[in-house]
Amino acid sequence: MSKRIGARATIWLVSAVTIFVAAWAIERTDRSEARPADWKVHYAADGGFPRRCELLGHDPLTIAKPPERIVVADAAIADMLSKLVDANRIAAVCDQAFSWSQLAVDAGDWVKRPRFKSFVAEAVLVHEPDLVVCCTFNTPETTGILRRAGLPLLCLHEPRNLDDVRKMIRLLAAVTGSEGRADAVLADIDARVLALARQPGQTPKTALFYSNHGAGGFAAAGDTLCDTAMQLAGLRNVARGSGHVRLAMEELLTLDPEVLVIGIAAGAATSGTEHFLQSQAALSELRALRDRHIVRLHPALYMSGSQSIVAAAEEIARQVKRSGNR
């Protein structure tokens, strides 16, 4: 009997320790620890190529000459590269970029470039690229195969604020030899940010970037580009914590933001979140709903996580101003 009890206790102990270790590992994940673009580039003596790129936590990457056959596997990177290199230097681009980045609005010559739907090794290898740019979303199986095939592969973390975006643009410019264009893009970002900051001053309205389709809500808290966009637009984010956090209706009522920012599909007048919130009697007194202070954003403005977040901020500021004047 005691042997059986001992076995049961061992099973429970092992299970509890396993779950504890998992929970500990999750909790110790400090989102502010690893920045998306902690990097260093060593230039050739004349400032040209070859260039050696050292990215935190990754093997160094040597770029022998300006890449002419770039495969882009991420919407944000496609957004940034679209401002840095001509479309004819792109060997292939992921299909998602044409839905979730500014390419959805204005693809220019990029629309003519070959596309791939899934980031699998075969879909990349067939284009014989001289540079592959992907993100940490992509599976290590695929990136491992590409690395072992000898392809120069740049794997970037997602940006979480405007400073990350600036760093990523500089890094991409360094590996593609597009510093001049990067300077222009960054100058444009700075000018637009300055213009947003110069808007007539008033007490910042409280706001929340929220989504809820009936299966639990999510809000963009600190250390997200949505938070950055709201701050640039002169709003104060009321979501606590960092990252995209769960936010129940009870908390929504408690926070009671003056402005709700929601995502909306291209061409649609309203969204599932808006429908859901308006159908809830408990939320009828929510200030943002009652006063109709709802900002609707096209996903291309905020989903990819690129310089387009400045355009998102401008759009938020424009809609807030319009609803205030109503």
Binding site: A25, T29, D30, E33, A34, G57, T136, T139, P140, R147
Partner: peptide
């Protein structure tokens, strides 16, 4: 897969 978990940077071994 995550940027800051225990074996960050050793994604070669992850599979």
């Amino acid at each position: 897969y995550g940027p800051t978990l225990l074996l960050a940077g050793n994604s070669t071994w992850m599979p």
